[in-house]
Design a protein around this nucleic acid. Sequence first.
DNA 1: CTGAAAGCGCTTACAG
DNA 2: CTGAAAGCGCTTACAG
Lengths: 330, 330
Amino acid sequence: MISIKEVAKLAEVSPATVSRVINDSANVNEDKVRRVKKVIEETGFKPNEVARSLYRKSARIIGVVVPNIDNPFFNEIAKAIEDEAYRNGYRLTLCSSNEDVEKERVNIDLFASMNADGIILMTNEEEIFKKVESSKIPVVVLDRETAHGNEVACVQSDNYTGGRLAMEHLLNCGCKRIVAMRGPRNISSGRQRFEGYLKVCGERGVIPAFVDCGYDFEVGQSKTEELLKKYPDVDGIIAANDMIAMAVYKVLTRAGKRVPEDIQLIGFDNIKLSQLMTPELTTVEQRIPDMGRQATRILLDHIEGKPVLRNNIFPVKLIERETTRGGKQK
Amino acid sequence: MISIKEVAKLAEVSPATVSRVINDSANVNEDKVRRVKKVIEETGFKPNEVARSLYRKSARIIGVVVPNIDNPFFNEIAKAIEDEAYRNGYRLTLCSSNEDVEKERVNIDLFASMNADGIILMTNEEEIFKKVESSKIPVVVLDRETAHGNEVACVQSDNYTGGRLAMEHLLNCGCKRIVAMRGPRNISSGRQRFEGYLKVCGERGVIPAFVDCGYDFEVGQSKTEELLKKYPDVDGIIAANDMIAMAVYKVLTRAGKRVPEDIQLIGFDNIKLSQLMTPELTTVEQRIPDMGRQATRILLDHIEGKPVLRNNIFPVKLIERETTRGGKQK
DNA sequence: CTGAAAGCGCTTACAG
DNA sequence: CTGAAAGCGCTTACAG
């Protein structure tokens, strides 16, 4: 790689002038501009970003921590982040933590020592929030809520309303015996959805029925089996999310239950998969790409010193598809 | 962030000595080592990686270009790469190109100017291979074959055998009218699988029947409809990959065809999804995590100056599940 | 064993 | 408008 010094020599100006031309940071004699541009053109010179970031203390990098990149939800989020970051001249370095706190910690340190400009955090570990706080890098928390107040902003869905929507829909579809699969209790989205569900139970005089569950496919299968034993008369299931709903569908099918004829099923997230599977899954939509984009925008705005909204709650929406029976009463 | 100079002052040694302690790069008086370590401990000092990479001309970063991170296959690959990279102290910066050549080009330049140590490339664009070549960064090509000879290595599956396996399996399952959905013609994996299929046709005296297709779900749907019109008597379908198989399944179901009773179906890749869907998909397994890991290992070995295998072909394997009828003849 | 010095490739006051 | 100089935070010959 050719350096600014060599460009300067070839263009017969000083390195400072070349820098000024590259950055358009000061008026430079037209003729010199021309000469410099010509040399850059001919040599294919690109400024070394590492040297730049050393001086600027900014690498135009944003660090992203996801629990698991190999999960459609985070995956779709990451795509949106990457997209928005790229559009603004930022790169993205990725840490898929597998919920390994040590790995998250190491990566946060790395982000700091890389002069990353900001971090988008989707983690469940309280400890990491503290860590990040001490690193002084601006953070936006995505799809999570935190008790700490030091993050630049939170962006998440209105999970509570989502929980309500799911329950109300099954009720409207005529289900008499609805069972909720509660999401992880250490994740705010799981708690909030469940609260929405409970609230509707209260309003409609329904006795809550549920089973504790996580967000991953594997636990979905075993928890569905458990559910079937515990509530043999179930005719409606609210899955903790879409991946769980896929698992539910598999177990129900194996057990000879038809969806939606015998048991109606609703998911949460509206990941692309929910529409690809057959039957197509009724679900509560989170605006995943918008959330990823927004988190990134907020981070960039903050970096540029613009004011920023601290709490960003995205609306959710019921998407009726084939695993529930629409307005029809049973 | 505290710097090495301040650590030096606090420990009453020179910055050079601190550096030597950090890197364990020379013998240092025990007492000084102790002092330096103590100060580092107390201050939480972490060396600035940007400064390091400026000197070393290495950022311990590997750049990854995928056509689309929002696609299970690349997703699973990226996870494996991230994992292996992390284990070796490397970070990963990601470009999800959406097959946008301009974006790929910009990112390659960025990788170069970030002092990235290597690139793992999964692209379809000939042009990009040339670009990368000129950037002088070591490249390994993953899931692709190139005509260029300048990459460090290629890693891919034995797609030809995979194509054979798929066809032979459907034949063994008693299918009389098998139609292949040919993968993209500009991607080597698509061509090779199709060749395997053709070869078996030749050997078994079957007249080839196929429909041109891509690798993404959406085209899978329309191409399946086309297929059904063109070959109304079809009783076995070889999908271009698992995502296409999902689309095929949906269209068949909507058309009132049962799988595998009326039409048997086989995919390719063995992405996790193929096992999550119901019915579970018979498919040809690619060793996705191994391939990602191996690509990374090779890159790192090369960077460390170790010799490296140029062509890495991973074996494929038939995974029988529920969309074909095993050994049973019809 | 160890410190002062030079250098990695930029950028920006500073002085003219 | 423009160049020489200093500095971003490290590392490694070099000399002792």
